[in-house]
Nucleic acid binder design. Sequence first.
DNA 1: ACCCAGGCCCTTG
DNA 2: CAAGGGCATGGG
Length: 294
Amino acid sequence: MDSIQDINIDLSINSGQYFLWEKMKKSWYGIYGETILKITDKTNERNDETVYEYDSYPEYNDWQKHIFRQDDNYDEIIYEISQNEKIRKIVQKYPGLRILRQKPIQCIFSFLCSSNNNIPRIRFILRNLSRKFGRKIVFDDMDFYTFPSLTSLYNASIQDLLSCGLGYRARFVSNTAKYISNKQLSMEYLKKIDYNYAKEELLKLDGVGEKIADCILLFSLDKLEAFPIDVWILKFLCQNIEQITKTEVKMNSKITSNQYKKISKEIRDHYGRYSGYVQQYVYYNIREENGRKW
DNA sequence: ACCCAGGCCCTTG
DNA sequence: CAAGGGCATGGG
């Protein structure tokens, strides 16, 4: 098991996977459902090892082990995905980039806001939702807002949702909150069942398609084989994977649900059970090469 | 005034 | 099946 020092905090937090983090006064503050997380860089200048201090409100001991997925065998993951030469080179550029484990409900609604949207605006909308429907918590003399509960989103009017900047996604949020509540869809159940079955369940949610479902599966339901394919990842695949080119996907074009399924299967056969980690490295790399904004 | 943004839904052919 | 348009909103 590797140590927490091997994790690159800034890289992991700021890689387009977990939106509700903010850096203030040399500390990162994150919203994890009802809990405020805090990370402070305590590295001594004369010490060469990076040291972080972890705090939270309410108290949540050793939360970093859960959130930063220290139960993963990171060495094994890196070894396996590095069997592919192209991926190995990209992985080596970003040591310590991790996938974070998000709270499922928060993750579902976060990525519901992501369609046809850009990352700064996704964060903007999520902050508005938290401010309007979350609970205020004062921590370090600052105001924070917890992520809205399922019930509060269930009860929210479309007008109130619209005021957060959701646009046409407001009805997705409302419908999805109602579906999960009414069907009593259990997040723990989704964690237990296989990738394919869990994805099938998520696709029933209004506003959740192939790509967003994969984001939810990878970032909150422990399905490390999930490989979200967005426009950037697709561009990478077209340039680097012969098999994808064979499917005759036009460059820079959208893909249909069936094309997505086909490519998704090929990818998971190709990169293996940790395809999700491949995606994270590739995504970071291609966004950096194209002057990311987040 | 245009175009774009971690897509998805709906309608046609 | 696939192709294509529409979609709220704000920033370049």
